[in-house]
């Protein structure tokens, strides 16, 4: 099995504060997982704010150096300081999609400019026709076309369309891997499904692997193959998405699942969280524990004292 992405015992520690009162924050601790090159999949990272999921994504994109451990993409180390040519090559293989499409696009420039500059850079051409073709192909993949987009400014599109343009831009160099950081959290609920369905079809039809970062368990269940659940920088549960979410084992995973607002008893006004569950989930914060493999293929972090 060849691996596309290999994350090996990666940790990230930030130092906060000035000379006095300096504080160390471990954003990510010993994260390891790998994606296979043969089988495209949607790999989901779930966690609340501050769980380190965005830091992990930034390290995969090479925007942040890991403090310990290493990340390999097709056997090559992801290195922020590798030099321009190498970085460009890496960037044409791993592309990001960010959270808020309204902030990702410059409001004063037409959307096509953003697509155009990506195409020019990664296709190494300044031939207008070739660039247009590449842009149109990428837009077709997300259900838009260059004709619809040309000449429009970001404020003229809906959030869903704009997010699709952002995904189209990421697809221009035909990358085998997309890193999508909460791509639907700023998009309207009615348009959310169109983005999620799009990610799904990218995997199924185009063979693009997606690292999907979210705190929305329902969409994670809907599209992902495998997932990891992170709590305060540590992976607490990892495995097949359906297996894990149908029956989460770690206390924190259970809390997350219980916190998803269900519509099954709409109008009943059930909002209480079981305090025992909260206590159990918070009890594991800061404890190292270790990941143990279970028979059904998942790994769960267990603690000696519990």
């Amino acid at each position: 099995m060849t691996t596309l992405l290999d994350v090996r015992d990666v940790s990230k520690r930030f130092t906060m504060g000035g000379l006095f009162g300096r504080k160390q924050v471990d954003a990510v601790m010993d994260a390891s997982f790998s994606l296979s090159a043969e089988k495209p999949e949607i790999f989901t990272i779930i966690g609340e704010s501050g769980s380190g999921k965005t830091t992990l994504a930034r390290m995969i994109l090479g925007l942040e150096d890991p403090s310990r451990g290493e990340i390999l993409f097709r056997g090559q180390k992801v290195d922020r300081h590798a030099g321009r040519a190498k970085r460009l090559e890496f960037m044409s293989n791993v592309q990001p999609v960010f959270q808020n499409p309204f902030e990702a696009f410059n409001p004063l420039k037409k959307i096509e400019r953003y697509l155009e500059s990506t195409a020019r850079r990664f296709l190494h051409t300044s031939d207008k026709a070739a660039i247009d073709r590449a842009m149109d192909e990428a837009l077709q993949k997300v259900g838009l076309s260059l004709r619809e987009v040309r000449g429009r400014f970001p404020h003229e599109m809906s959030g869903g369309q704009l997010q699709r343009c952002a995904i189209a831009r990421a697809l221009i160099p035909n990358p085998p891997l997309l890193v999508a950081d909460e791509p639907v959290s700023m998009v309207d609920a009615s348009l959310r499904m169109s983005i999620v369905n799009l990610l799904k079809s990218l995997r199924d039809d185009l063979g693009v692997s997606v690292i999907y970062i979210t705190h929305d368990l329902a969409t994670a269940y809907y599209i992902s193959n495998r997932l990891i659940i992170m709590q305060r920088g540590r992976i607490v549960e990892m495995g097949d998405a359906r297996t894990v979410l149908d029956n989460p084992e770690h206390a924190y995973s259970r809390l997350l699942k219980a916190s998803v607002l269900s519509t099954d008893d709409a109008g009943a006004g059930k909002l209480g969280t079981d305090p025992d569950m909260l206590r159990l989930a918070n009890g594991s914060v800061g404890q190292a524990g270790r990941l143990i493999d279970r028979a059904d293929g998942r790994s769960v972090r267990v603690y000696e004292s519990v």
């Binding site: 999620v196 329902a218 269940y221 149908d246």
Partner: peptide, 14 residues
Amino acid sequence: SLPRIGDTQQRPAL
């Protein structure tokens, strides 16, 4: 269009 845990049926997008 609301996705739910325990249900992977294709959801239509408007």
